[in-house]
Design a protein around this nucleic acid. Sequence first.
RNA 1: GGCCCCGUAGCUCAGUGGAUAGAGCAACAGCCUUCUAAGCUGUGGGUCACACGUUCGAAUCGUGUCGGGGUCACCA
Length: 561
Amino acid sequence: MLFVKQELLATLAAELDRLSPGAGSRAAFESPKVAAHGDLASTAAMQLAKPLKQNPRQLAQNLREALQNSESFQRWVEAIEIAGPGFLNIRLKPEAKQQIVREVLAQGSRFGVQAANGQRVLVEFVSANPTGPLHVGHGRQAALGDAICNLFQTQGWDVYREFYYNDAGVQIATLAHSTQLRAQGVKPGDANWPSGENAAAYNGEYIADIAEDFKAKKTVKSDDRAYTASGDVADLDSIRQFAVAYLRHEQDLDLQAFAVRFDNYYLESSLYTSGRVESAVNRIVAAGKTYEQDGALWLKSTDYGDDKDRVMRKGDGTYTYFVPDVAYHIAKWERGFHKVVNIQGTDHHGTIARVRAGLQAAHVGIPEGYPDYVLHTMVRVMRAGEEVKISKRAGSYVTLRDLIEWTSKDAVRFFLLSRKPDTEYVFDVDLAVAKNNDNPVYYVQYAHARICSVLSSWGGDVAQLTHVELASLQSVPALALMLQLAKYPEMLSAAAQDFAPHDVTFYLRDLAASYHSYYDAERILVDEEAVKLARLALVAATAQVLRNGLAVLGVSAPAKM
RNA sequence: GGCCCCGUAGCUCAGUGGAUAGAGCAACAGCCUUCUAAGCUGUGGGUCACACGUUCGAAUCGUGUCGGGGUCACCA
């Protein structure tokens, strides 16, 4: 039906141009919410009424007659009705809707996917410092980032997944110190273990594991580094390097369990060693966008819309967090990524204006509004009616791996993608393992498994369904299902545009509901061969779209459940 | 106090300036000798926080108020 819709849109555009030159470029169809309002609707008459100084209903009447005389409308449209203040409600012939089944079966996993557009996008996400296992917030970020990458891929982008982290800094020093203490036999709670409000120590049990392996002179290998422990408890530098490699490897295992992979790991420390931080600062100073005050170097970020100026270099000579971030984004730009999306927690929102201001102040040709940000809120975990706040492994927070082990990769991904990023999410562990209608991931997967079961009972080759006669598909549930299938490509491109994977989860629930209704209303494996093949084609197409959508979310589509 | 996000059915949440604002859960009433009942069908439930404005039309855009959350160099 997509090509049907394109044909009709072209006709509408031509008619609008005839009424008012230039108006055709804004031609569009809406999808009415109420079935009684038809399959497609145009609001053009109401929009043009004022500029043309005509009565909108009369305008709609003229438009209706012109459209009815066109070749494409005569072929695909059953009726055009004028409603309310001037809506044109278009009801399609069943043949128009049946076309979608052919399109889906012919295109398979490519259905909804755009041709390569030759553009690259870098998506930065997770970016956890190697100080512990990934927590559920990182999980939300991993699910979001990976799904957004998949969405970009469907729209023809060449996608690059990047993980940015700091392997130096204060937190890493704390990590090394904590590990050293555990290696020396000091435990949290002991007199000489750091405690209190500003405790500079990590209390999780995983620190003891690192200390043990360090003393055993083990070698650890992560996706981006490898290191062999010296085993010398006094060698803080070796402890630091070993702990970082160890925890990077732990995080790799977390990500592996979640089926998320990265193309690159970028080190904050490299921005210093390569001189990129200095060079960024020098550019900004040279541009006259800084000043000295109270022993610090300030950025005139208010020149770029920030609500106050920001410290770049503190009194002790070190830089504030956003400065290396500015250098990092200049690096992204110079590496050729002119489209960049950062997935971060809402607690980072304050740095956005600073980073963007710094990028403008550096005058390296980066446009305003670079990069894009997707901010997400926190995740809380409920189990057996109570909030879970700690895990044994990490000490102070629930880990991503805990959640996956309690439920499944599929459930965690689907659940974390079932809300807008800025909606706070309460993850209900009991719901995620429930095997019923309450659990959306099973509901969607079950629709797919049911179809596979029907296809398997039939036993034929799905490929031969691509060209079967579809004219018998006329029932209300069948037409509703086809209409739902037809919405997939537009839903996908809108979701990519808005960085909104949750659109996909909502769509899949709707599609699964349409299928379950259809399944209940109409038996598929009937005696009459032509009818059976047409119905098989419809459900095979449905399974294909379910698979495509689930793949975007990184959720599996099981054939049996 | 400055900035950002949020306020929609009893609960959890969707909702590209369009028509009678939707879904799931919860409640109630039904549907399995037939392809997976992990399913389906139906019923009830709303001052879209509030006020004003923009316009043919506002849950959606603007301004303000109230309420909730986040954040504000010397953590990252």
